[in-house]
């Protein structure tokens, strides 16, 4: 019982971290249809920027916001230069995936060159320990969980109840039609790159705060979990991506609590494979049939 409770506790925390990353990935993937394998690299970037600022005396929460801004701008830069240029040339889905790997290599090893491939420790006070139904959380973990919950609510509210959200969903579903209806699709795409970049940066900081170590490849090694969560939910199902992230993290952490800790990571790939076998379009995705790249 104690094991189960602690597994659930860890699962909630890592679910919140995974949800932050998965929502950004899902939003951007649904919008542009680019399977952006460089997403993990940008998560590492967020973590490293936050670490750098924090070590220079900036409060970690301010550093997290600044890291989110930095990653959002980088994400927009990559999206509106390289991806857009290739999309306008008529590059299709698989070429875009190769391209995103190239971007990932450049960003990853560029950070590696700057950080000398070091693995950094976050020397950051975790705050008091709170016990709750047999689960224990540190203050930092509670803040991560709470901010993930707030962001899910805000993002879902934005996507479904504001004009911008409707414009985003319309552009994702059919760019040509949205454009014909008077939506400024290029602006919508810009907003998407910024939003997903900000979520990616926050996800990276949260990842570093929960691992407490960070290197230039932290984000990329985390990518399989994001892919699993996003593909299970379906392309562009942003809120459901957060839900499947939570469920996936709970499955991983609970099985880890009951032993087989070296192998619990396999669950992510197992879930991904089973999903692709039985329902490749995901449970809630509506954009599976989309073939165009919008960038």
């Amino acid at each position: 019982m104690q094991l189960l409770a602690s597994g659930i506790g860890f699962g909630i925390v890592s679910g919140a971290v995974l949800a932050l990353g998965a929502m950004g990935f899902s939003l951007q993937f649904g919008m542009t249809n680019v399977l952006n394998l460089a997403y993990g690299s940008l998560m590492s970037m967020g973590a490293l920027v936050a670490l750098l600022l924090n070590e220079n005396g900036v409060s970690i929460w301010v550093a997290a916001l600044l890291a989110a801004v930095a990653v959002a701008l980088t994400s927009l830069l990559i999206g509106s230069t390289i991806y857009r240029a290739f999309a306008r040339r008529g590059a299709r889905l698989f070429t875009m995936a190769i391209l995103s790997v190239a971007v990932s290599l450049i960003v990853d090893f560029g950070m590696g060159a700057i950080t000398r491939s070091n693995v950094y420790q976050f020397s950051f006070p975790q705050g008091a320990i709170h016990a709750f139904l047999g689960m224990t959380f540190t203050t930092t973990q509670l803040i991560i969980v709470a901010s993930a919950a707030v962001i899910v609510a805000l993002l879902e509210g934005m996507l479904h109840y504001t004009k911008l959200g409707v414009a985003i969903r319309a552009t994702a579903a059919n760019t040509a039609l949205a454009r014909a209806s008077g939506i400024r699709t290029s602006l919508v795409v810009t907003v998407t790159w910024l939003t997903s970049g900000a979520l990616c940066g926050l996800g990276g900081v949260a990842l570093a705060l929960s691992y407490l170590t960070v290197s230039f490849q932290t984000g990329t090694t985390f990518l399989p979990y994001i892919l699993a969560a996003v593909i299970v939910a379906g392309i562009g199902a942003v809120g459901y991506a957060a839900l499947s992230a939570l469920i996936l993290a709970l499955a991983i952490q609970i099985s880890g609590a009951f032993g087989a800790a070296e192998y619990n990571v396999v669950i992510a790939v197992g879930v991904l494979l089973v999903m692709l076998m039985v329902r490749p379009q995901g449970f809630f995705g509506e954009l599976w049939e989309k073939v165009q790249v919008t960038a």
């Binding site: 889905l93 698989f94 692709l276 490749p280």
Partner: peptide, 26 residues
Amino acid sequence: PVTMRKMRRDYQAATMLAISIIATQV
């Protein structure tokens, strides 16, 4: 048997990449 099923080619790429990263970790 699983990865050669008919699916979007970028999904196939992502799945194989995920397997590769996880295999190294294990």
